[in-house]
């Protein structure tokens, strides 16, 4: 929560910069040609590696928190750069005949995606409060896994590229504040599936489907 608070402050600071009065001669309702719109986000991801996550954490759902910035054009095109973070404590385990046995050895993962999205906002009219959008992009996913009783080379630290598509809608709440709800489908190969539980059960995708909510400052 503290992290989210810090992000909110940062967002507000940036928002003040972008929310300058319109240039003389332009309509006050008409957004600038290019806007910089900071946002904070919270997401709940349903990981594709279901057995792996269920074995270690008892659930395949996990929350991410983060923020980013969007550069949007009046024509509807936009680019997002977002960073988020997940921390999750669990247990080491093994799987036998589909049954999971947790061993009580503490384990912790962290996942930090940095994602670059390009997309299109389908703004139907200037006064419309609902703006659907679609996009897709590429991300870099920094994964770290530590566990008790590990020797130095048994910790995992890996960064791998992944890709995703996203679709949702943005609704304007106030003149300078919008909320966006979307779903993002991510594929992150190359981290899971090489060893450990994920290899055991044949799961090699660290991605999944995330329901995201973003609070965006800007028009």
């Amino acid at each position: 929560m503290r992290r989210v608070g810090v992000l909110m402050c940062a967002v507000c600071s940036v928002a003040r910069l972008s929310a300058q009065p319109s240039a003389p001669g332009t309509s006050p309702d008409r957004p600038p040609a290019v806007q910089v719109r900071p946002f904070v986000l919270a997401a709940e991801q349903r990981f594709a590696a279901a057995t792996t996550f269920n074995a270690a954490f008892g659930s395949r759902l996990a929350p991410f928190y983060g923020g980013g910035v969007q550069v949007a054009t009046r024509r509807g095109f936009y680019v997002d750069l977002a960073a988020s973070h997940l921390d999750r404590p669990g247990q080491r385990a093994f799987v036998s005949n589909g049954e999971v046995f947790q061993l009580g050895i503490p384990l912790k993962i962290s996942l930090t995606p940095v994602e670059l999205t390009a997309g299109y906002r389908l703004k139907r009219s200037r006064r419309s409060r609902l703006v659907p959008y679609v996009g897709g992009g590429v991300g870099w996913y920094k994964y770290r896994e530590t566990a008790d009783f590990a020797s130095g080379d048994e910790h995992v630290e890996a960064t791998h590229a992944g890709y995703f598509v996203v679709g949702g809608a943005e609704i304007r709440i106030q003149r300078w504040i919008s909320a966006a709800l979307d779903a993002q489908y991510t594929v992150v190969p190359g981290i899971l599936g090489l060893s450990g539980l994920s290899k055991e059960v044949g799961e090699n995708d660290l991605g999944g489907v995330a329901a995201r909510i973003r609070v965006i400052l800007g028009r």
Binding site: A49, T52, R92, L103, I105, E145, L192, L197
Partner: peptide, 12 residues
Amino acid sequence: ARDTLRGLGLAR
């Protein structure tokens, strides 16, 4: 013994 008691993590 050690590996058996320690089990597996997600990626190792």
